[in-house]
Amino acid sequence: MKVDSVAQRVKFVQDALQRYGKNLFLGVGREVNHPENMLYNLFGTSVVGSTAVLIPRSGQPAIIGASYDEGNLPAQVYEVIGYKTSFLDALSPVLRRMEPASREIVMNFSQDEAGIDTLGHGLWVNLGELLSRYKILPGDDVISSAFGRRTEQDLQYMRRAIKEGQEILQMALSNIIREGVTETQIAEYMRGEARARGLGFAWAEDMDPIVSVGKNSLYSHHRPDDTKIKSGEVLFIDFGVSYGPPGEAQCSDIQNMSYVRKPGESHAPAEIQRLFQVALEAKNTGIVMIAPGVRGTDVDAAAREIVHASGYSAPDVEGYDHGFGHSLGRTSHEIGPGAFPPWSRYGRMAEAVFEQGNVVTAEPSVAHPEIGKVALEDDVLVTEDGHEVLNRQQTEIWYV
């Protein structure tokens, strides 16, 4: 990773410590080899041995790494401290030197946010005695704030990913999507175009894009199979690509809906048109609320009320069993504020408040048991005084 990118993320951690009144973040990991790991973005490189970053609210941060990793650690950002035989012996004096008066330390674990929960139980056990004098706090608030913000460079990469992804979808609609073609054939075509452009995938390649016909679309994360496109059915595509160098690439994540007309049809049946309009209204209702200081759960509630009032979904979760949207960045489900209902499965993520620089998806859905699901998804940037939709929005049914 570029040193400037590491320095910017460290600065975001310090900003978040200031915002939440905390004084020290301690991030610990080992065998950190993938850019999607949040620690990779703080270490600035892959590491093999146990490694720790100590980032105070202000002042010089430190990084402790094994001797065979030490030469790759960003000395322009951190005080670099190497060790040969004992990670704990190297960490202990640095931790004592930097410990806050409160003895509160924020660490890289979370009960609710998988992207933050990178510590690992084994390392936690190893650290037990050393950390026994401290009050250890989960990283939900601080790390969500620090990693949910996109830099100007991030946004350049993301805008490019969105542009490329939407071009590939339009190519698929023009060149391959027609009656008789299978979900798998459509997915393979789109993956091939992404590879030809040198793009990465926003989630597991074998599931990106999600292509589902008719009732298959009732399962949001349906794996494309040999189901053929048939006239009179809806076609749902959820596609995301990534663009940028390793460790810095940013993702797109966009859903669109089409209808395969029967011979002689000029428009979709009234029921499908109504499903589309409800999904569109719910999405737009949520988007107009997005701004700094707004709670994600309030955005979710406003959009969810539109769906419930339509009669397509019961007041609990039937037919709309997910949140309004999630954070987007290095991964399709980036660490950061989203818009979720106050269900136990979302935990503290449902308490998120938007900040300038967040990017959140907008993707409420409407389902009909005999037709399938209609969902439209946009990628929305939280700006200084509101929001900006980064992609071209679908405002009417597309016809095949």
Results as ranks from 00 to 15, higher is better:
residue 116 I to C: 01
residue 340 F to K: 12
residue 375 A to D: 01
residue 265 E to C: 07
residue 245 P to S: 10
residue 180 G to T: 05
residue 37 N to V: 03
residue 319 G to M: 08
residue 96 R to H: 13
residue 32 V to P: 00
residue 255 Q to K: 10
residue 195 R to T: 10
residue 263 P to V: 13
residue 320 Y to W: 02
residue 211 V to W: 03
residue 33 N to M: 09
residue 65 G to Y: 04
residue 363 E to A: 15
residue 73 L to M: 15
residue 303 A to Y: 05
residue 397 I to V: 13
residue 254 I to F: 08
residue 81 I to S: 09
residue 360 V to T: 08
residue 300 D to E: 07
residue 302 A to I: 08
residue 197 R to S: 01
residue 267 H to E: 15
residue 372 G to N: 02
residue 27 G to V: 05
residue 326 H to S: 10
residue 384 E to M: 14
residue 222 H to T: 04
residue 41 N to P: 03
residue 258 S to Q: 07
residue 182 T to L: 11
residue 165 G to E: 00
residue 390 L to A: 13
residue 387 H to R: 14
residue 146 A to Q: 02
residue 272 I to Q: 04
residue 139 G to P: 01
residue 400 V to A: 09
residue 109 F to G: 00
residue 254 I to A: 04
residue 190 M to Q: 06
residue 105 I to G: 01
residue 101 A to P: 02
residue 313 S to Y: 04
residue 155 L to I: 12
residue 300 D to H: 15
residue 320 Y to I: 00
residue 351 E to Y: 13
residue 117 D to M: 02
residue 204 A to H: 13
residue 303 A to Q: 04
residue 225 D to K: 11
residue 134 Y to W: 12
residue 215 K to H: 03
residue 129 E to D: 13
residue 188 E to I: 05
residue 179 E to P: 10
residue 147 F to N: 02
residue 230 K to P: 01
residue 16 A to T: 01
residue 319 G to E: 03
residue 118 T to N: 11
residue 378 D to K: 08
residue 14 Q to W: 07
residue 330 R to W: 04
residue 153 Q to P: 03
residue 150 R to T: 08
residue 162 I to G: 02
residue 238 D to Q: 09
residue 260 V to T: 05
residue 175 N to M: 13
residue 91 L to M: 12
residue 341 P to V: 10
residue 330 R to F: 09
residue 109 F to H: 09
residue 357 G to N: 03
residue 117 D to K: 04
residue 15 D to Y: 05
residue 233 E to H: 13
residue 346 Y to T: 04
residue 121 H to G: 14
residue 9 R to G: 00
residue 127 L to S: 06
residue 240 G to S: 11
residue 341 P to G: 07
residue 275 L to S: 09
residue 279 A to S: 15
residue 14 Q to I: 07
residue 368 H to Y: 04
residue 326 H to V: 09
residue 86 S to M: 11
residue 135 K to R: 14
residue 254 I to W: 05
residue 292 P to N: 07
